[in-house]
Nucleic acid binder design. Structure first.
Lengths: 153, 153
DNA sequence: TATTGTTATACTCTATAACTATA
DNA sequence: TATAGTTATAGAGTATAACAATA
């Protein structure tokens, strides 16, 4: 037995019928998905994902950062951090060195090629963030960032 | 040549030095990651991911929904939707039928086991959302949902 | 021709476990 | 003992391409 077709079903992203629209988690998930897709379009040429660019950016900002430190900044465990750094290193964007003070730790640095890629990525990021922020006022952007920071800060 | 160790590097999630903290996309990514991890903890017993629960919930809310319709609600393409529905079907939570009106379309329905799992998931979701919303006032929750809806709506 | 579902394939991210080395 | 890195492995999600069935 089949029911009526749903060609007339309204495509309201998250309906209010059963409280599904009241779940912040679902809204966050869909918003992140939309932003991630647009990010991928903007950085298609550089072939950098959100995670990869964030890692590259952080290594540039904190020269000599260890992998565990990078993982703490990005809220990732050791194995996940390894995977990201491996990809950046394979493309020659990041250099692994030994920490002078603690032999167990890595000392991550951005390479010349990495710095060049980061510079290009920053331009693409500006376009991407412009698209994102176009739907907000400056004050709303600040509010959104503050509210999101309460979740990951 | 190695640089100084970074044991003293402050773990400020997104520093302000190079504008990285001004990127909404990064904040969104980290927030979604944190929420996703807590979601996984709360729904560990049911072994349902955010995507799987959202799909199950939508099928329950729109009986007879086709896979393309489900994909539109969740902003996913056909192949990605297939993967989600396959997992739900493999666990007996969702039933595939043929649409009576359009032979090309599926007619998705929730099963009895799926409804039971959804009921349990709703309780776990309440705990999860409570944890999430504990850091906001009711008005802030409404603002956050509205701002996120502008991204995926 | 266009749409829907399907399969195959590949890549990214995530996580766990076990191992090595260093503290 | 604890920490940092590494490797192997597995699962989830995402995406593209090609194909069959139906409109």
């Amino acid at each position: 037995m089949t029911t009526a077709p749903n060609t007339t079903t309204p495509v309201t992203p998250l309906g209010q019928g059963s409280g599904i629209g009241d779940m912040v988690g679902f809204h966050l998930q869909l918003a992140q998905g939309a932003v991630c897709r647009h990010f991928a379009d903007c950085l298609e040429e550089l072939r950098l994902t959100q995670k990869q660019l964030l890692a590259l950016w952080l290594v540039a900002e904190y020269p000599g950062l260890a992998q565990t430190g990078l993982g703490q900044h990005m809220h990732m465990d050791r194995a996940s951090t390894m995977a990201i750094v491996n990809r950046l290193q394979a493309r020659g964007f990041v250099v692994r060195g030994k920490s002078a003070a603690d032999g167990r730790k890595q000392s991550l640095h951005i390479s010349q090629a990495g710095a060049a890629a980061l510079a290009k990525a920053r331009q693409a990021m500006a376009e991407h963030e412009g698209w994102l922020k176009a739907r907000y006022t400056a004050k709303e952007v600040a509010v959104l960032i503050e509210l999101l920071t309460r979740l990951h800060g």
